[in-house]
Design a binder for these strands. Structure first.
Lengths: 133, 133
DNA sequence: CCATATAGTTAGCTTAGCTAACTATATGTT
DNA sequence: AACATATAGTTAGCTAAGCTAACTATATGG
C-alpha cells in the first residue's frame, strides 16, 4: 500500500515537472515561493524548515528570488536579527502560472481515466489528506 | 481534483524524502539506480530519457554511481558506440535499503489514518494508476 | 565512399544542497 | 548592569545535479 502510494506520487510529480521547463525560475525557488504565496510571509528559518533545507541554502534561494523581483524583504519589528520574506505581485503571478501549467498536465492525465475512478480517488485523497487545499 | 492529487503527491514525497538523508548516495543517483533495478539494464540515452535529464547529466550520474560501485558498464555487442549500464549487487542492496526506509515512513503516515480510508485509497490508486507495481 | 545521424563525452556555466565559522541581536542569570 | 548563552542570518567553500555547445566515434543510407 505504501508502495503504491509512493509510486503514484513519483509518477504524478515526474509527469507534472515537465511543465516547469517553461518557467524561468528554478525548482527550489518555485517551491519556496509557493510556501510564501500559500502560507503567507515568513522569516528565513521557518522557510528553511518548511522546505527541509539548511539556513544557508534558503539564504541563497531567497537572494535569487529577490534579484528576480519575486519577493520582498522587510525588517521584523519585534526582532532586529530577523527578516520577513513576502511574495511580491510578480512572484504571485509567476507561481500561479507555473502551478496552472502543472495542474493542466495533471488534468490531462486524469481525463484519460474513467470519471468514476477519478471521483473515487478524490474521495480517498480527501479522507487521507484532509488538510489538502 | 488535479490540485488535490498534486498537493497529496508533494506531501507524500516531501515526507518520504526525510529517509534519504541516511543514504550516502544522492537523490539523482538513487533515482537512476531505481530505474536500473526495476526496469533492468539500459544504455545512457534511455536512462536520460527515463529520468528526463540531458545526456551529459546522465553521464555524470552514471560516473558517480560507477565510482561508488553501484553499477557496472558493459560494451554493447551490437553497437560499439553505446554502453550498457547495469545495477551491481551493491547497487541493488543500497536501493532496497533506501526504498525500505521511505516505505517505512509512508507506512507510518498511513497507519495514523482510518484503515477504511487507506483501503479506499488503495483501490482508487489501483484504478487510476494500473501500472503501479 | 561519403553524408548524415546517433551514442556518448568534455568543457564550462548555473542552481541547489551541505558544514563550519562568523556577526549581530535576544534572553536569561547572576 | 554584566555576562553567558541561545538564536537569526550570512559568508566561505565544498559537492551534486542540472543545462547548452562543441566534440569524438561509430552507424547507416544513398
Amino acid at each position: 500500500m505504501a508502495e503504491r502510494l509512493h509510486s503514484a506520487a513519483i509518477h504524478v510529480l515526474r509527469y507534472a515537472r515537465q511543465a516547469d521547463r517553461v518557467s524561468a525560475i528554478g525548482p527550489a525557488q518555485l517551491s519556496a515561493l509557493s510556501v510564501l504565496v500559500y502560507s503567507g510571509p515568513s522569516n528565513l528559518r521557518e522557510l528553511a524548515d518548511a522546505e527541509q533545507v539548511a539556513p544557508p541554502t534558503m539564504t541563497r534561494i531567497v537572494a535569487a528570488l529577490r534579484r528576480g523581483g519575486y519577493v520582498r524583504l522587510k525588517r521584523c519589528p519585534d526582532d532586529a536579527r530577523a527578516r520577513v520574506v513576502e511574495a511580491a505581485a510578480k512572484g504571485v503571478a509567476a507561481l500561479e502560472k507555473a502551478r496552472g501549467a502543472r495542474l493542466d498536465l495533471i488534468d490531462g492525465m486524469l481525463s484519460r481515466c474513467a470519471p468514476a475512478d477519478v471521483a473515487l480517488l478524490g474521495k480517498a485523497l480527501a479522507a487521507v489528506f484532509p488538510q489538502a487545499p
